[in-house]
């Protein structure tokens, strides 16, 4: 069996603050895996550590069978791409969509740019009309679609999703989640998705890990969570909280 992402005893330390305290997990190829937790749980740090944006103090990260060192090479970024949380912050304010999508192609010296850009825009449901717009001419949902197109244009096999819909309205969230599921199915992608919302994770993922204070609380399958078959109190609390306010 091959693991798309295998993490062993990962520690991340920022100025003596231990953001991740020895976390291990394994994401199978083609699987959609969720990380759930509240702020400070280290779920986003884990994604950053995989991409090389956070300092790894110890532990190993293996992607598609290849152990990663301190730095990531260009080949890594063709395998792994990421979609950020804030659609208003993740697009360069002075670049058109066209320029944004051209950049990864230019960096990796990919020739058939025109075709790829058009295809990527079609794939995320934007079409040619959006190609020459600036970020400020797009709504939040459209921006997130552009961010997804940018992540897909290098044709990665793994997509890291950092709360991709938490800044969007509920109706737009549904559209973006549907789009993500669709591209995953079409491209047979592996997802590693972070969210604070249990409902989104159970909707999107087959397995998940609950995190708290930089540690793994427990690992569950979506159906275990749906059936409330959880063993930790913290998870139970989260489950209860996700059902909304209950008057005592």
């Amino acid at each position: 069996m091959t693991a798309a992402i295998a993490i062993q005893g990962l520690e991340v330390v920022f100025d003596r603050f231990r953001a991740l305290k020895g976390v291990s997990l394994e994401v199978r190829e083609g699987e959609s895996y969720g990380l759930v937790g509240e702020s400070g749980s280290g779920k986003s740090t884990l994604l950053k550590a995989i991409t090389g944006l956070a300092p790894v103090a110890s532990g190993t990260v293996t992607v598609n069978g290849k152990p990663l060192g301190k730095t990531r090479d260009k080949a890594f970024y063709r395998e792994v791409q990421m979609v950020f949380q804030d659609p208003y912050g993740s697009l360069h304010p002075r670049q058109t969509v066209d320029r944004l999508l051209q950049e990864p192609l230019a960096i990796h010296g990919i020739a058939d740019g025109e075709k790829r850009i058009e295809r990527a825009l079609d794939e995320v449901g934007l079409g040619k009309g959006f190609r020459f717009r600036y970020a400020h001419q797009l709504s939040g949902g459209q921006r997130q679609r552009v961010a997804i197109a940018r992540a897909l244009i290098l044709e990665p096999s793994i997509l890291l999703l950092d709360e991709p819909t938490s800044a969007l309205d509920a109706s737009v969230q549904a559209e973006v989640l549907n789009l993500l599921e669709e591209v995953r199915r079409r491209r047979k992608l592996t997802f590693l998705m972070v969210s604070h919302d249990l409902a989104i994770i159970t909707h999107m993922c087959e397995r998940l890990m609950v995190m708290q204070n930089g540690e793994a609380v427990e690992t569950l399958t979506a159906s275990q969570l749906i059936g409330h078959r959880v063993s930790e109190d913290y998870t139970r609390n989260l489950l209860r909280a996700s059902e909304g306010f209950v008057r005592a």
Partner: peptide, 13 residues
């Protein structure tokens, strides 16, 4: 430290 610069870093630039 903005996300759009991180995004370009993640392109391998």
């Amino acid at each position: 430290n903005s996300d759009y610069i991180k995004a370009v870093q993640l392109m391998g630039a």
